[in-house]
């Protein structure tokens, strides 16, 4: 039996590690903290997801404060348009998890989480050396929603124009990303980037900055359901939020000073291992 002090230290350390690693490879800590809480400590999925969503809001707001401003490459219109399906999906995902937990279908959540981790790992692997790309294809839907824009690239020292495309496809993927975010308690930044960068052809910098705008709001959309259903525990959420915030601040500092290809590779391997473990738990091989 561990003491209260030991409990707080454990939680702070795990959350710090999640925030630190997450910020090194450009994702939130939710994808690490939820498996850590459920697999290591046996915390029920909706409680772990609730704590993780609170942490997502904290890190997205903290990062938003640093990055927000006139020079930010974020596309506010695209962010708001995509939020319509993200928020809707997120609410549905939260309802699904709460329902699954109450009706002994929690294994489905483990299974989905495992698959999501493997997909995230493959995306991190594929995009490890990706360069920004600007497209010049005019899409009438993007024009209607006024999504064509430009941003100043400080590394290239020039203004980059971009014309996103396949808006409806992107909205479809974003809806799925919202469901996963609400269901699993993760920010879903990886899936936002797949939709915006790979499908809609936003430049990577624009999609990352815009995704960060949306993460907090996506989490807020589903956190109300967890909160009012009694799955948000201050005693769990507080050390998780403090740890993840401290971890992500320190991770960002290190990221600016180091080449992170080795860390990224290790991180991908960890995600694959944990993803497989979550799938095995989902199918009942690990109890």
């Amino acid at each position: 039996m561990i003491s209260l002090l030991e409990y707080f230290v454990f939680m702070l350390l795990i959350a710090f590690g999640a925030g630190f690693l997450g910020s090194l490879v450009g994702i939130g800590g939710g994808i690490i903290i939820v498996p850590a809480l459920t697999l290591l400590f046996g915390v029920p999925v909706p409680i772990a997801a609730g704590a993780s969503l609170i942490a997502v809001i904290a890190t997205s707001s903290g990062a938003g404060f640093i990055a927000y401003g006139k020079d930010s490459p974020a596309n506010y219109r695209a962010g708001m348009l995509l939020m319509t399906v993200l928020a809707t999906g997120s609410v549905l995902g939260a309802v699904a998890t709460v329902y699954a937990s109450r009706s002994s279908y929690e294994w489905v959540v483990f299974l989905v989480f495992g698959v999501v981790m493997l997909v995230s790992a493959s995306d991190l692997y594929v995009t490890r050396n990706r360069e920004d790309h600007a497209m010049s294809v005019d899409d009438p839907v993007a024009e209607y929603f006024e999504l064509n824009s430009s941003y100043y690239d400080h590394t290239k020292k020039k203004r980059i124009e971009y014309h996103p495309t396949k808006v409806y496809h992107g909205l479809g993927v974003m809806f799925s990303a919202g469901i996963l975010s609400g269901m699993l308690g993760i920010g879903g930044g990886v899936f936002n980037n797949i939709a915006m960068s790979s499908i809609m052809r936003f430049p990577l910098k624009v999609s990352v900055a815009t995704s960060n705008l949306m993460l907090g709001l996506t989490a807020a959309a589903s956190v109300g359901i967890y909160y009012l259903s009694g799955f948000i525990y201050p005693l769990l959420s507080a050390p998780v939020v403090i740890g993840i915030l401290l971890g992500s601040i320190n991770g960002r500092k290190l990221m600016t000073r180091s080449k992170n290809s080795l860390i990224r590779t290790l991180f991908i391997l960890v995600i694959v291992a944990v993803g497989i473990e979550m799938i095995l738990k989902g199918v009942g091989i690990i109890i």
């Binding site: 002090l5 909706p46 050390p239």
Partner: peptide
């Protein structure tokens, strides 16, 4: 606010047990 709450509980309830047992036993439901 969260740091204050954590400090308060650690100072005033230093002898208390970890909430994990209750959290898991309770199953949240």
């Amino acid at each position: 606010l969260m740091v204050s709450g954590t400090i308060i509980i650690l100072v005033l309830c230093s002898q208390a047990q970890s909430p994990l047992t209750l959290l898991i036993a309770n199953d949240g439901f």
